[in-house]
Design a protein around this nucleic acid. Structure first.
Lengths: 207, 207
DNA sequence: TTGAATAAAGAACGATTGTTCTCTATAATT
DNA sequence: AATTATAGAGAACAATCGTTCTTTATTCAA
């Protein structure tokens, strides 16, 4: 790590960027960082560029660099039995790169209903779909049935291909879908993102 | 639609933005759009702002507006098909932007175990945790109990605060956790990302 | 044919930009 | 105590910025 500790500056800039979706001018960065001299702000920006958190955009402006969107990954959390909070060195991960391998063939599809709840796909989630025309049985596919998109498991029996829901509790609500005419595969389920709505009000929890 | 056809300009700007991840100055926009006069470029930018394709960022600069990432006409739009599948393009919008609100206070944690399966949190998922020292009951928290990380629902009764699992089927495997000494909140569960392993081999599925 | 929108260019403005250079505190090291 | 590197401030510069005002070409309906 360089002598100058740029991480606090980086953190504030990252927060600013997610708020405003822009890397501001040196003048505004000075305000954000509580730096009086624009020259010093300029120096910090240079360090951030050296570390590839920022880079030069055409026109002399700065934009996020490759490392700007790196997120720290904590130690494994045993959601079952608790696990030692071992101090493993923090890993870094870029969410977009992690989830999306072929940007041009990938779309996001919002989920309605609970027919796939057994696979951990809830209403309001966004599934990541990679375009494909074919699939194999057992795969989760986004299919077009009767002019509507639906996310189901592709299955096959003597009657041909059909689509299955994955909801044990409400299985009778989701009978297998056997297409009238054609079963058209739109893409494959390759991932999922979920944003939870956290209530703003917070109470203390120490005891 | 306004008389001035701004869509060709918007298209070029979207392409530029995908490449450079920045909305350039009027001067550079003039070059991009083959417009001789910066004043005219400025007028087009104004129209784009009126239509909310662009908006003002602090400092008088322009940034993408709410409609910038809208897919105008998809390549595969079919009569009758709901547009919902194609309304967000990962090429233009970073998933990261969608999920992370406070980068400097956000950490990802990989999940092991199935104690939170009823909330759609599966083994191998990564939960997005926003650091916080306090939480309210009912919230999903990443807590440190007896020096160990665990993701659970914060609950409270006459005995004080405790942690609940969410797995109906294996409830007996996950009894409520009552901390010996202290229940320390590390952060709040604000989102989740999942990458599924898709078998590479693909068979045809038309019939 | 006239007249009004519209599309585009040109000129000019003060403000802000990124950058550089010089100077001064503060902290660490010798 | 002296030295040296770091952290920060201040001033100054030309270039570029967003913006406004004015002028010219083009289109198209009346």
């Amino acid at each position: 790590m360089q002598p100058l500790d740029i991480l606090p500056y980086l953190g504030k800039l990252q927060d600013y960027y997610t708020r405003e979706r822009i890397v501001p001018s040196t003048t505004r960065l000075s305000l954000l960082w509580n730096v009086k001299a624009r020259s010093w702000t300029h120096r910090i920006v240079q360090r951030l560029k050296e570390e590839r958190f920022l880079e030069n955009a055409p026109g002399g402006r700065a934009r996020p660099g490759p490392r700007f969107f790196e997120r720290t990954v904590g130690p494994m959390v045993r959601a079952g039995l608790p696990q030692q909070a071992a101090d493993v060195q923090p890993e870094l991960l870029r969410i977009d790169d992690y989830l999306i391998e072929n940007p041009s063939r990938t779309i996001l599809f919002p989920i309605k209903g609970d027919s796939m709840i057994d696979l951990g796909i809830l209403e309001g989630d966004m599934v990541i779909i990679e375009r494909a025309n074919t699939a194999s049985t057992g795969q989760v596919v986004l299919a077009i049935v009767d002019n509507e998109f639906t996310l189901k498991v592709l299955a096959q029996d003597k009657g041909g291909y059909y689509l299955e829901a994955r909801n044990e509790r409400k299985n009778q609500d989701y009978p297998p879908i056997r297409p009238e005419q054609k079963l058209e595969i739109y893409g494959l389920y390759v991932g999922l993102i979920r944003k939870t709505h956290v209530p703003g009000h917070r109470l203390s929890a120490s005891r």
